[in-house]
Nucleic acid binder design. Sequence first.
DNA 1: GATTGACCTCAACTTTAGTTGAGGTTCTAG
DNA 2: CTAGAACCTCAACTAAAGTTGAGGTCAATC
Lengths: 151, 151
Amino acid sequence: MQPATTHRPLTIGELSERSGVAPSALHFYERNGLIEAERTAGNQRRYRRDTLRRVAFIKTSQRVGLPLKDIREALDSLPDGRTPTKRDWARLSLRWRKELDDRIAALQHLRNDLDGCIGCGCLSLKSCTLQNPSDELGASGAGAQRWNQPT
Amino acid sequence: MQPATTHRPLTIGELSERSGVAPSALHFYERNGLIEAERTAGNQRRYRRDTLRRVAFIKTSQRVGLPLKDIREALDSLPDGRTPTKRDWARLSLRWRKELDDRIAALQHLRNDLDGCIGCGCLSLKSCTLQNPSDELGASGAGAQRWNQPT
DNA sequence: GATTGACCTCAACTTTAGTTGAGGTTCTAG
DNA sequence: CTAGAACCTCAACTAAAGTTGAGGTCAATC
């Protein structure tokens, strides 16, 4: 058996320190339904240990480029009663993977187009693919399709 | 020789239509020193035709993920008196190229890490590389936090 | 020569992701 | 038991990148 301290819930200071997220941001996440906490008799927050993982998910999702609104939706799909399992987290991570792939592909397309344009310095609104995406890169969901037919 | 209309300066409505940028955004860019305009006797804006290219540069820079502040700096490095040449634009475009490369590399790195994590669903703050970037990506400096496209 | 659409300025509002500060309470170590 | 660190709430502020609206002017057409 591990020492009791290992199972003790986390104070906001501890969670902040261990996650690298400022207390003010944790408050903010709570206000926005991304995390939650129990309270002590004296009204201080006490976080379940798996909140650490939840915060980790939030941070990494942000690095992928997702807005908090989307992250919350993903977190909402976690089981309500029980502590999420590895499988639960893995399922959510797969979403990231798709996002990442799309985002990388989009930037690579942009780079291809750019390579064609650097030589000419054109930036012509009429002819340059860079100026005529004709496809919403940022439509968040529609991945990179074929918005770079070379002209 | 082309018809005279080709050389006529652009009204804000025309610039907006041809660039796909709202008039309110053009006002905003002007307030922030990204573009400028002559005025008619009646105080209406008239844009030199190469402003179209300037706006194109702004839009594309945003797609690459650069904040307006940086874009302005880049534009400030354009020759002051004369209309920029293709070479001028090409020089600026090279900056994008570097930005893009960095951004793509960072996301690919993240994806690699993610692939290692999806199997385990770990997201462990201690062991998972995803939570311990320790590389430049996590540090606020180089990377704009917002990689989202303007919609 | 009037109408109508395009344009002008200025101020206030929007969204996202938080931070900062004031004023007050709780927890813990000595 | 008490000092001080850590915590609480609430409101206001920040920054980026604009949008919206009010109230007024300009310009091109009938």
